[in-house]
Design a protein around this nucleic acid. Structure first.
Lengths: 120, 120
DNA sequence: TGCAAGCCTGCACAGCTGTGCAGGTGTCGG
DNA sequence: CCGACACCTGCACAGCTGTGCAGGCTTGCA
């Protein structure tokens, strides 16, 4: 296994074998970057609360989300815009109400196995 | 179920029942905040690469991590300091080498079920 | 048609965060 | 004892991010 890119091939290593294993574990750079962006969206208490509520409760309107999380409705709206742009949530119009739901299965799994799975 | 805190009890709601469900789903504010901080640490491509390498490969030295991730060693050092302060990784001295490993089981599970579980 | 409710946008501000560089500390081998 | 190596720290900079406020738009109901 010679997975070390040419631009760092001249650097010293302590255990070259494990370095190659680590490079294989990290995998594609794009994949890592895409997950880092996902985690960045989960890194805000407000957005995380919104996602938890949507994941467990199902379709919810902006106003109800604002009351449930204690945020103001412009903040909820702004947060949902980011989450929708990233494809994590999706909104469905019902009259003058828009109900949002969580549509990203990978994030749902992270919420289930991570946040909800480790609360004592 | 009357889970709506007093300071927002006078706000309009569309479906009061679901609001209470959502509040129950969100759970303790401290818990959410602690997970948001965890996700913030995963939200940087460099730190995420380090954690993936440590999770799959096991104990690794700073220099090897720098080569594997393409980062410079001060950046790796700085990242590991944050991760260590948060209790995600732990370092063990072996002469002039310090090998780090992932010690937070919740984060390990997120990496396994999230990042590593969803790469095509 | 008029009014209120639900949702969205723009703007300006403070605060944090990642990054690079230069240089310092401790440890091992000759 | 000295140099090389592994690792760490401080500082200063640019860039992003969350927040609040004021106000606008669309929809539904009386």
């Amino acid at each position: 296994m010679h997975l070390v890119p040419a631009d760092r091939a001249d650097r010293r290593t302590i255990d070259g074998h494990r370095v190659c294993e680590a490079i294989a574990a990290i995998g594609d750079t794009e994949h890592v970057r895409s997950w880092a962006e996902r985690f960045a969206l989960l890194a805000d208490p407000g957005r995380l609360s919104l996602l938890l509520a949507l994941h467990e409760t199902g379709p919810l309107a902006v106003t109800d989300l604002a009351v449930a999380t204690g945020m103001r409705d412009p903040a909820v709206s702004q947060a949902l815009r980011l989450l929708r742009a990233a494809g994590l949530v999706s909104g469905e119009r019902d009259g003058r109400i828009i109900r949002y739901r969580l549509v990203d299965p990978a994030v749902a799994e992270v919420l289930a196995h991570g946040v909800l799975g480790h609360r004592d």
